[in-house]
Design a protein around this nucleic acid. Sequence first.
DNA 1: GAAGATTGAAGGCTCAATCTTG
DNA 2: CAAGATTGAGCCTTCAATCTTC
Lengths: 179, 179
Amino acid sequence: MPDGPDFLDGLLATWAAEAPGINVDALGAVTRIRRLATYLERGVDKALAPLGMTLWQLEVLAFLLQAPRSGLQVTQLLPAALLSPAAMTNRLDRLQEAGWIDRIPDPEDRRATRIRLTRTGRAMTKKALQVRSDAAVAVLAALSPGQRAKLAPLLRGILRGLCESECATIASEASTSNY
Amino acid sequence: MPDGPDFLDGLLATWAAEAPGINVDALGAVTRIRRLATYLERGVDKALAPLGMTLWQLEVLAFLLQAPRSGLQVTQLLPAALLSPAAMTNRLDRLQEAGWIDRIPDPEDRRATRIRLTRTGRAMTKKALQVRSDAAVAVLAALSPGQRAKLAPLLRGILRGLCESECATIASEASTSNY
DNA sequence: GAAGATTGAAGGCTCAATCTTG
DNA sequence: CAAGATTGAGCCTTCAATCTTC
């Protein structure tokens, strides 16, 4: 496989010429990761459309799949979603309208609400996860089995570094804010 | 490096138990890529804040760095940004208010507008690219040199596959739409 | 009629302010 | 006063409609 230049290579060369101090490899990697994420998001949304679901909805539902029968508090959903409390409230409103989740008052803390999957929500989530999985398999078919095996450790390694630095700085600055 | 389980491993196990047909490795890879992109975006925005710039602004400016002196049409900026024309018009409005780009009538096509970096816009873009590069280097420091060398071909491979399938389907469906 | 660019409505996000309860 | 959750304002995005020019 010759693997000629892609959309970024020309740009990177220009950038290197204009700003000589930059690291072309690093800049190329993060730019491609961002672009990849955009493509993946659009592809999955397209695949989920027949189920009447979007990716941001599935993200919440899929996390709720591992909740205890009593449900989870809104606050407990935030770190997994990397979302503000306001955004989560909005998502839950839509999911409740769709009939996929229930809000029930927390018996142990009257400030809180417990979020639970409904029966249909649970079934839809399983179907949607299957769709998402199939889409992911199709995308990764572009890589050889050996390449696919290399991918996971790399992603894990970068994420680990980010969670220790980035999340730490977020946490330290989060005196009032919360996510 | 033992590399214990991260935020996703527990969820993946739950999903596999509830929906036996899913591919855990594929689902894990695409989920981590998305999360990685979110972290990267937030980190860069934080690093760019002192310059009064955001990542979405830099994306447009950096692409304009390789434009000819006569500038580029709005339409020519779209494929690189993966954006709707309406969104690009909005971005250009903000960039023009900031004094970083100029809109000049296209001398050869009176429907079109040419977009060009201003003098200060060009200088700001170079500074911002340096900031973005430094941030990227810091993030990728979590990987060994050998791992970093493996990363680029993998990303390139997946993107290539997506551009041929996803972009193709987008193009074929884009009878009226345009991006 | 098609293409380049813009506008307005609606959706989802962040931030700051609010209300209730611990 | 701090924490859980919600609300409203402002920003950026998409989609559909519009206006001008080819």
